Computed example of a mutant assay.
Amino acid sequence: MKTRLDRARQMLTQSDMGLATIAEFLGFTNQSHFTRAFRQYAGETPSDFRKRGREMMQ
């Protein structure tokens, strides 16, 4: 699971793929499952992580 979520972090900051697409690509059953797992792992939602990551790049 950690490997998939690390890959998700990379995809969130380096691509414009939607959350549902990333979830499907990484093998989660749906976007909701992905969001719950990501929040538990990273302490924030995938959307918040993406937004914060992009702000840091500017």
Score class of each variant (00 low, 15 high):
Met1Gly: 11
Arg4Gly: 05
Arg4Glu: 14
Arg4Thr: 10
Arg4Trp: 09
Leu5Val: 02
Asp6Ile: 10
Arg7Cys: 13
Arg7Lys: 15
Arg7Ile: 14
Arg7Ser: 13
Ala8Gly: 02
Ala8Arg: 00
Arg9Phe: 03
Gln10Gly: 03
Gln10Lys: 07
Gln10Thr: 10
Gln10His: 11
Thr13Cys: 09
Thr13Met: 09
Thr13Gln: 09
Gln14Arg: 14
Ser15Val: 05
Ser15Gln: 08
Asp16Ser: 13
Met17Lys: 09
Met17Gly: 02
Met17Gln: 11
Gly18Arg: 11
Gly18Cys: 06
Leu19Pro: 01
Leu19Asn: 08
Leu19Ala: 04
Ala20Thr: 10
Ala20Ile: 06
Thr21Pro: 05
Thr21Tyr: 10
Ile22Asn: 00
Ile22Gly: 01
Phe25Met: 15
Phe25Ile: 13
Leu26Asp: 15
Leu26His: 15
Gly27Val: 12
Gly27Gln: 12
Phe28Ile: 04
Phe28Gly: 04
Phe28Asp: 04
Thr29Arg: 12
Thr29Pro: 07
Asn30Arg: 03
Asn30Thr: 02
Gln31Cys: 07
Ser32His: 09
Ser32Val: 09
Ser32Gln: 10
Phe34Ile: 05
Phe34Pro: 09
Phe34Lys: 03
Arg36Thr: 12
Arg36Gln: 13
Ala37Asn: 10
Ala37Asp: 11
Arg39Trp: 04
Arg39Ala: 07
Gln40Arg: 08
Gln40Ala: 08
Gln40Gly: 03
Tyr41Glu: 05
Ala42Glu: 08
Gly43Ile: 00
Gly43Val: 00
Gly43Leu: 00
Glu44Gly: 01
Thr45Val: 00
Thr45Ile: 01
Thr45Asp: 01
Ser47Asn: 08
Ser47Cys: 05
Asp48Lys: 06
Phe49Tyr: 13
Arg50Ile: 06
Arg50Pro: 09
Arg50Met: 08
Arg50Lys: 13
Lys51Met: 13
Gly53Ala: 12
Gly53Phe: 06
Met56Ile: 13
Met57Glu: 15
Met57Phe: 14
Met57Asn: 13
Met57Ala: 15
Met57Cys: 12
Gln58His: 15
Gln58Ala: 15
